[in-house]
């Protein structure tokens, strides 16, 4: 059983929903970013998504665009991301998902990426611009020690949902709205309809909803019809607001704790 599967199993038995926390790896720099992940893991984040910064993040809004630019400027690249995973493993066993665009993986080497990610202690990967139509070229080179998280969008028809789920592992990432990350205008009734359809077609994989979830209230609302929520831009917005703040990691941790408490049963 993979660490991701195990985590969802434990959460289910406790009646909790998962908090998946995304940050851009290396924003604002390696040391601070590592400290932020430490605080997040300590404060109840159930899964950590480390964003590999890319120069042209076409699925991301301005907040993550800026965080990626800061991280690249501070010297972050795939090799350093792997180092960051190793360092996180020194203090936490929280499952880690590497969230990347395809080109940095291609440049690093598909097989090397798999080998290094597994060796560093990563548990899964999500490649945002690699739909099932194109992903064989990557996964056929891989073993089974890295879950392959796939995206489903509100535009995805039901039969396509089933096809995507049949080739996914770990969990399914349901995009809450037709838009880029960090967009406003969350419509929980509309997402609920898509989530219900996905639940029929998800091959029994856990479903986590993300994009535009920025408050504990959002998290509570969106988790009602899913197994967890993904929060990314809201963490990055906080990091951006505290670039000169030496206590920013603690503040990110406190925010994670507030989000998590909204996802525990009865709260």
């Amino acid at each position: 059983m993979s660490r991701i599967e195990e985590t969802f199993g434990n959460l289910r038995s406790r009646g909790e929903k998962a908090l998946v926390g995304f940050i851009t790896a290396g924003d604002p720099d390696f040391a601070m970013s590592l400290e932020i992940t430490r605080q997040m893991c300590r404060s109840g984040v159930d899964l950590l998504e480390l964003g590999v910064p890319f120069s042209d993040p076409t699925a991301d809004g301005p907040v993550i665009q800026r965080s990626s630019a800061r991280a690249i400027g501070a010297g972050m690249n795939m090799k350093v991301v792997m180092e960051m995973v190793r360092r996180i493993r020194e203090f936490s066993s929280v499952p880690i998902v590497l969230f990347s665009y395809y080109n940095p993986i291609l440049a690093y080497g598909a097989e090397k990426f798999y080998g290094d990610a597994v060796a560093a202690g990563a548990d899964g990967t999500l490649v945002v611009d690699l739909p099932p139509e194109e992903s064989d070229e990557l996964t056929r080179l891989w073993g089974h020690d890295l879950d392959f998280i796939r995206l489903v969008a509100p535009t995805t028809p039901p039969e396509r949902m089933a096809r995507i789920a049949s080739r996914a592992s770990g969990f399914i990432y349901l995009v809450s709205m037709t838009g880029i990350t960090g967009s406003s205008g969350l419509k929980s009734e509309e997402t609920a309809v898509v989530a219900k359809e996905l639940k029929k077609n998800c091959n029994d994989l856990p479903v986590c909803v993300g994009f535009g979830i920025s408050t504990p209230e959002d998290a509570a609302k969106m988790s009602q019809f899913a197994d967890g929520v993904v929060v990314g831009s809201a963490f990055e917005r906080l990091i951006e607001s505290g670039l000169q703040d030496s206590h920013i990691a603690e503040k990110v941790g406190e925010f994670a704790a507030r989000l998590k408490s909204a996802l525990r049963a009865g709260e």
């Binding site: 076409t58 699925a59 395809y102 945002v128 611009d129 690699l130 739909p131 139509e133 194109e134 796939r150 995206l151 489903v152 969008a153 509100p154 535009t155 995805t156 028809p157 396509r160 995507i164 995009v175 037709t178 838009g179």
Partner: peptide
């Protein structure tokens, strides 16, 4: 070639 886009765009 191919289609390397986010899932939201794939159906389109």
């Amino acid at each position: 070639g191919g289609r390397y886009v986010a899932e939201t765009l794939m159906p389109a």
